[in-house]
Design a binder for these strands. Structure first.
Lengths: 225, 225
DNA sequence: CGGTTAATTTGAACATGTTCAAGTTAGAGC
DNA sequence: GCTCTAACTTGAACATGTTCAAATTAACCG
């Protein structure tokens, strides 16, 4: 069940070559059309060897996700160090997600369903995927905290997690998007990120105070439970 | 790909007995632990015969969903004909969802992931599952329209679909819920349904008018696109 | 009843994710 | 350099979803 870490130079090489072959094939043929045998073949190792390093096909997807996350983080680094406006930071960040993932659009559907499975080790709400999720949430923490927006403390606390969830929603929309250049998704991102920033601003209104406390309290209790 | 409808008395019987065996086994052992061979065995037919009536194992799940939907609709009928308060109607309806689904809690996880797969015929956002989805949305239409709440027309138009989506979120939460008697989910339902009704009421405030128009416009354009 | 056709049924065959016991390799300790 | 152990590698075997061509059944027509 646990991911085997190579203890040897040879092991490291094998693991790397298997992973690389898997990433290539996932992009070429999609997740389901890529067989474990094809991965082993292209990596030049035996079928059993693949399973020595990756307990299941799903675990290879987890690495795939980490890979795209790193691409994404690198892509938005300049924006985050230059820009101070929250709406712009958020829009740029989420746009970068779908741009980064674009090469994998065809694969994304089946991967998403694998990830959504609560009993999968990849499920982002628990288990093996926790470190990666924490990284992504932390990234949205930077988006929020590096901006010049003045955000109430109780909102600022929950916002990164909320944005991570929001990003998953966008990705799910994007998977279905058949518009040329995925323009539809980009439009939705522009509109929703702007709306989010607007609503965060409105949350200080006296009439909304009660509901805001309740929403945040509920979210907090869910996260902690 | 299309679901084969039996053209014969014998065919109807076979289809029914296969489906019944599948529903039983899903409950007994869960979705993944139930093999097509086991279903065929219990139904007293051959493996190939099962595939004559259900193009895939997933299609059997679709029937499973229809089954629970009918249980649910029956369970809330008295409430809907008696009660006029929107919050009460909504709370009762969503509570009834998780109560109805409780016997299938162990199965729900893998089913959910199957359903979430965009390329699955079961995906509620398109294809084979559309009739069932329409039924559920229609049911939330009754919940809203049968209440004495005065709701602006633009909100009333999108509310049933939104509530259907909300129900899916609750079900996903419920899947993870390990609390005794699934009390945690019931608490969340009580809190969120109340919040929803509250926020619908607040949406008429002048300060929220702009955001409300934008949110509804966005939702509408997504649904139509 | 005999024949013809469509529906139904069957089980073998296939593809693929996964397991595992046995074989091979490499490096540490002497 | 030899030995021993842990790491690594292998390929056969297994389980299960799915396909398919052939066999069987039922029903309708004359």
């Amino acid at each position: 069940m646990a991911i085997e870490a190579p203890k040897t130079k040879r092991g490291e090489t094998s693991r790397a070559v298997i992973l690389s072959a898997a990433l290539d094939l996932f992009q070429e043929r999609g997740y389901e059309a890529t067989t474990m045998r094809a991965i082993a073949d292209r990596a030049g190792v035996s079928l059993g060897s693949s399973y020595h390093y990756f307990p299941s096909k799903e675990h290879l997807v987890l690495e795939f996700y980490r890979h795209t996350h790193e691409l994404h983080a690198a892509a938005i680094a300049p924006l985050l160090s230059r820009e101070k406006d929250l709406a712009t930071r958020l829009r740029g960040t989420v746009r970068a997600v779908v741009v980064t993932c674009e090469p994998f659009h065809a694969v994304a559907g089946s991967i998403f369903s694998t990830v959504a499975n609560p009993s999968s080790p990849l499920n982002p709400f628990g288990g093996a995927a926790k470190p990666l999720r924490d990284d992504v949430v932390e990234l949205y923490g930077q988006v929020v905290n590096g901006s010049d927006a003045r955000i109430p403390a109780d909102i600022a606390e929950m916002l990164p997690l909320t944005l991570w969830l929001y990003q998953m929603g966008i990705l799910y929309f994007w998977i279905f998007d058949r518009s040329p250049g995925r323009l539809r998704t980009l439009e939705v991102i522009d509109e929703t990120t702007d709306l989010i920033v607007r609503l965060v601003g409105l949350a200080n209104l006296p009439v909304l105070r009660g509901s805001r406390k309740r929403v945040l309290g509920l979210m907090k209790s869910i996260v902690e439970g």
